[in-house]
């Protein structure tokens, strides 16, 4: 089980979030919580509520409003498929299908071994390279199904070696 999936919630350092009581800190706090744990757990919401005094229900409202925040853990490698207009027109759908076929996960799912998650994202701003995907912070552009399969298999090999 990856660290991100661990249910053992360690109480974390407020300094980590650079919270100094200023207004408008909720979203940056949530962003750093997610950076640390990979997702926003119920315990994280309670903890943020505790240190900011913002009701947990309000925090939950903010978490569910923004697409960036997740309430479930993600896999080690997060595959984001750009479904912006340029990528859509250039074949984002077959790209998504190829990933589903190769990794055996649908959008918003994580593979059983906790290694891969598949997400759909709006334009990531490099339309000239459409269709584009991101795997963690690495961008892959001008994709075709065979090219994509090759890339995904490299990651699968990497996962095997890590084991």
């Amino acid at each position: 089980m990856s660290q991100q999936q661990s249910d053992n919630f360690k109480p974390f350092n407020v300094d980590l979030w650079k919270y100094d009581g200023q207004e408008g800190a909720l979203i940056p706090l949530l962003q750093s919580a997610q950076d640390t744990y990979g997702y926003i757990s119920e315990k994280a919401i309670d903890y943020i509520s505790h240190i900011t005094g913002i009701p947990a229900a309000d925090i939950y409202g903010v978490v569910t409003f923004y697409a960036q925040f997740r309430t479930k853990p993600l896999g080690k490698y997060v595959v984001k498929v750009c479904n912006g207009t340029a990528c859509h027109v250039n074949g984002a759908k077959p790209i998504g299908d190829t990933i589903t076929d190769e990794l055996n996960i649908d959008y918003d799912e994580t593979s059983d071994d906790g290694k891969f998650s598949l997400l759909s994202v709006a334009c990531i701003g490099c339309c000239s390279l459409a269709p584009v995907i991101l795997i963690n912070d690495e961008t892959y552009g001008r994709l075709t199904s065979p090219k994509l399969r090759k890339i995904l298999r490299q990651y699968k090999r990497k996962v095997k070696e890590e084991k």
Partner: peptide, 20 residues
């Protein structure tokens, strides 16, 4: 934090304030 509507100025302000 990934919300297209936040390009609209009043929504953007709400977002900076830490709200929906």
């Amino acid at each position: 934090a990934g919300a297209l509507v936040c390009g609209e100025e009043t929504a953007l302000i709400a977002s900076i304030e830490g709200k929906r």
